[in-house]
Every structure is written in structure tokens, then in C-alpha cells.
């Protein structure tokens, strides 16, 4: 996933077509090979890591031209007091998180879930905080 990330986000897009090509390559992240790692042999076991991947990309451009009001245009090719410009930009981001480890051993195949304790801890604290805030507001409303 990190190689794909650097491929996407370290690429300079010089024109619209290159942007579209990059977007097509981005959609290749939907392939199973992007979420299942290569098997790793550990002793008599083979481990395949399965991860969730999310990636997004967006780009845009704009251009325009204009002339200063009241400017006499003497030479059509290089009119004084007029200008033309354009620009574009884009950005994106991605994230990946291990979800499970598939362990192939002589006894059989098993799927071991990988629990993200930090994420769960944050979710628990957020839920707890929202409950406290809600309870406080209700207590205030019933007293008043």
C-alpha cells in the first residue's frame, strides 16, 4: 500500500489526460492484491495479512483571460493591457489498517482478527463523553 501511495501522491500531473490516467490507476486499489499481503513463512505456519485500504484523489483546474477596460488593442497578437492565465491543483490521501491475519498451519486454516485498541479506546472515550454531556444537559433541563 505504501508503494502505491508514493506512486499516486509523488506524481506530478502536467495535463488533464495524465490526471485521468492517475485516477484510473487509483481505481486499481480496488483489486484484492491491494488488501492481501504476500504470504510470509514463520516456522511451520504461513501468515497472510489482510488490511483495509482507503484512498482518495481529486484535482481541478481553471483558466481565464481579460483586458483592462478602455485599452486600445493595436496588435491583436500582443494586445497591451490584457492577460491570460491558468492554474490547477490536486491532492489526495490514503489510509490502511490491518484487519485480520490468515494463518495456514498443518492443523488447518484460521482467521485471527486484529483489534485496533487505540481506535477502540478513542471510540469508547468519545461515546462515554457524549453520554456524560447528554446526561448533564438532561439534568439541567429537568431542573429548570
Amino acid at each position: 500500500m505504501s508503494e502505491r501511495d508514493s506512486e499516486f501522491f509523488g506524481t506530478a500531473v502536467e495535463n488533464w489526460d495524465q490526471g485521468l490516467d492517475l485516477m484510473e490507476r487509483l481505481v486499481s486499489v480496488a483489486d484484492p492484491s491491494a488488501v492481501f499481503a504476500e504470504p510470509v513463512q514463520v516456522g511451520d505456519r504461513t501468515i497472510i495479512t489482510a488490511s483495509e485500504a482507503s484512498i482518495g484523489l481529486g484535482f481541478g483546474y481553471g483558466f481565464g483571460g481579460g483586458g483592462a477596460p478602455g485599452t486600445e488593442v493595436e496588435n491583436e497578437e500582443h494586445p497591451e493591457g490584457s492577460g491570460y492565465g491558468g492554474g490547477g491543483g490536486g491532492g489526495g490521501g490514503g489510509s490502511a489498517r490491518p484487519v485480520a491475519a490468515i494463518i495456514v498451519e498443518p492443523q488447518g486454516v484460521r482467521v485471527e482478527p486484529i483489534v485496533d485498541v487505540t481506535k477502540l479506546g478513542l471510540a469508547f472515550l468519545t461515546a462515554l463523553a457524549s453520554m456524560f454531556v447528554m446526561a448533564g444537559k438532561i439534568r439541567k433541563a429537568t431542573k429548570g
Binding site: 481505481v27 489482510a50 483495509e52 485500504a53 481529486g58 490468515i102
Partner: peptide, 14 residues
Amino acid sequence: WPRGAWVWNRPAAI
């Protein structure tokens, strides 16, 4: 969308 894309891929089964 016309000027971008977002992909979410997750392992479903083995």
C-alpha cells in the same frame, strides 16, 4: 466523480 475518485477496499473472505 468527474475530477477525482475515492476507493475503499476491504478483505471479505478467504
